[in-house]
Design a protein around this nucleic acid. Structure first.
Lengths: 215, 215
DNA sequence: GGATGTGAATGTCTTCACAGCT
DNA sequence: AGCTGTGAAGACATTCACATCC
């Protein structure tokens, strides 16, 4: 299979979300321009992205909403639910365990892990919390597909190594640190601190420009 | 000023983090290769990124750790604290209000906003929650620099429009939706659902490859 | 007529490779 | 000798523009 860029996949997710809105409005077809306007991109980009996976539209007409939405579900692997575990049930991990958007998209968080003995055995948002010590066994037994890492930065690489050691293939990292995974393991990092610093940069930059008369 | 890409700014944040580690270890200089190894990129990339902002290294020697860390603080606008407000104090918003990484990097969350009258007047993580109705006035009076949006997708654009209407220049969005802002307003979106779907795509893709014999 | 699908052109980011400073 | 700084090359992503089909 040809390599597909991360940004294309990201946009496919967006397209699918907006397709559902069109569907709710009862629209039967959309043009690439319609979708682009909603997703914040261009018509050509929409067509290029979709063309990677096949031809879904009819010339002169546009794309059939329901059919394209279904195709995107297939492409994105959302046809069947995935089993997810959250490692680290602090504020962030706990919030993720209750995040409705995950469940409604077919990501079922079935377990949490924590090192704190006081938390082990309790439930958060109705989801049982297990001991960090049992992570490897539980990941295998409960057939976890995706591991969400929500531990402090210093502990994250160790968690990932252990998870990968028992066959984890997909990891979503919320620790503010760059992680290493072997080939064949999918890793995404959500680094909120880095995003904030990006804004800080923009503010500082604007201020510098102002002081200089914005050359 | 020349345009600097988002990915460069993102990496500068990472470099700064790792520089602190080197500093803690007592190292006085680092090479671009050292930094690259930690940040998960290449030596050439590190040098290119830094060269956009000046020349910080000494040939044959490397970069002075403390000095470069300081320069990056300046570049990223982290020399002085920023005042932040969180709109929407549900699970995600609440977790962000307690996120230590923000405060320790100089992002001071001074206010929360919520539409729920039961929450208004209370505090979350020691931070007062104000009424959503008073948002515009409070943003101005409390001189908020950065607005974090943690409301449901359907409410996000409205919040952004109101904030921008009273002069907000930087927005960090956690709602799973693409937002519009006028020129000159910095916007970053953290779309956790989209990231998960990226992993779902990778898993589905691996599975498709396996069934086909991985061409 | 209207909108797709796509090669070609353009733009952007990354990597190479090496001259030049310490 | 070691490592930076940087033009040039290469890879990748986006946009253009148009033939093609409904």
């Amino acid at each position: 299979m040809k390599k597909v860029s991360d940004s294309t996949v990201l946009r496919l997710s967006l397209y699918r979300r907006h397709l559902r809105e069109f569907q709710d409005q009862g629209r039967l077809t959309v043009s690439s321009g319609d979708l682009a306007a909603r997703a914040g991109t261009t018509a050509a980009q929409v067509r290029k992205d979709l063309s990677v996976f096949g031809t879904f539209g009819k010339r002169g007409l546009g794309y059939p909403v329901a059919e394209l939405a279904g195709a995107l579900r297939d492409i994105l692997g959302l046809r069947r639910p995935w089993r997810v575990a959250v490692v680290g049930t602090g504020r962030i991990g706990g919030a993720l365990m209750g995040y409705r958007e995950f469940r409604s998209e077919g990501f079922h968080i079935v377990l949490g892990f924590d090192a704190d003995p006081d938390k082990v055995g309790s439930t958060i948002q109705g989801i049982p919390v297990r001991s960090d010590d049992d992570m490897e066994r539980e990941l295998v037994e409960r057939e976890i597909d995706i591991v969400i890492v929500a531990v402090p930065a210093g502990a994250a690489q160790r968690v990932v190594d252990r998870a990968v050691g028992v066959g984890a293939r997909a990891i979503l990292n919320f620790a503010p640190v760059a992680l290493e995974v072997p080939e064949g393991v999918a890793l995404r990092t959500v680094n909120m601190a880095v995003e904030l610093e990006g804004l800080s940069y923009a503010l500082a930059e604007a201020r510098r420009d102002a002081h200089r008369g914005g050359e």
